[in-house]
Design a protein around this nucleic acid. Structure first.
Lengths: 160, 160
DNA sequence: ACTGATTTTGACTTACCTTGACTATATAAT
DNA sequence: ATTATATAGTCAAGGTAAGTCAAAATCAGT
């Protein structure tokens, strides 16, 4: 049996289908009123079902004229290699393993030199100065988020 | 729904596009009258949307024949802006502040669209799923590491 | 029934927008 | 000089709307 949260999530996805735009915009209070729930319920739905990992991004503004914008990031299939790398990462990854993935992507010319450097420094142990248990998990998160971003760009075409 | 402040900001940006000059000039009262708002609203817009951080400077004079001039600060050397942003970050930064830096770098064409996305997803709250105290510190670390990487590329390659 | 995870709510907080009364600074007129 | 007029600036109060967080409720598995 679907929960209210499910219905709200479904509603938002319908809005995407109807709109064909890069993002859709809602009023938190209005939406809550429409579903007869507390406004903070909307935040819950966004936090649990419209995350970066699941291919969305959320932007908002408070006060008069406030809004919540939901962006759809990854609609399409990642490129094969990116996809393969993505799955290889799992929920945790060491710095050397991460570097080897980056080298591979560079060799295959899926990323530029600049991008390779950019990714390299973010997954570096020195940048991620936490204790290693957390570090490897976080590194996996970050790297996967970056690969997903790249995959989307590949499919979207050159851009600009 | 956009606010009056949004419309005013938009209007000013249009003036820049039309003018091609280093600065544009407005009369505070006239502009307020055109948008049917209090004159101080104009100050609000300038203070929140035409800051040094976002690459603008404002100059004005009171009294008869008074005016408000808005300058668009064009990027000096790419490296300079990167350094400036780097220092602005400090040891901790929120997601919105990080995003505003990325937007600025993109506007000044120091980073590509792909790179902007790449950086954006890594500084996202959902990617950095720690408690917020650590999160903001880590975000600062990561962002600074990335900016430093870009600065190195500027100096080394001379930029594509 | 008990336990743990997920959902739902509401009180409280924070951010953003708009206005208006008061202040400050030019220029023009006398 | 003094006064009048024309601008712009400041600041705080008032209104609107989203965010946070933890307690309460519900649900699924044992």
């Amino acid at each position: 049996m679907p929960t209210i949260a499910d219905y709200i999530a479904e509603h938002i996805k319908v809005l995407f289908n109807e709109s064909d735009d890069v993002y859709i915009e809602i009023q938190r209070n209005d939406l809550a009123a429409k579903f007869g729930c507390a406004p903070s319920q909307i935040n819950y739905v966004l936090a649990t079902r419209f995350t970066t990992q699941s291919g969305f991004a959320v932007e908002s503004r408070r006060g008069g004229g406030g809004f919540v914008r939901i962006f759809k990031l990854s609609a399409e299939q990642p490129g094969d290699l990116l996809r393969e790398c993505y799955h290889r990462i799992g929920s945790s990854i060491t710095a050397p393993d991460a570097r080897s993935i980056i080298v591979r992507l560079r060799d295959e010319q899926i990323i530029s030199e600049r991008e390779a450097h950019l990714i390299n420094v973010t997954v570096d142990d020195a940048t991620l100065n936490l204790d290693s248990a957390w570090r490897n998990r976080l590194r996996a998160n970050i790297l996967k988020a970056m690969l997903a971003s790249l995959a989307r760009q590949c499919n979207a075409g050159g851009g600009s």
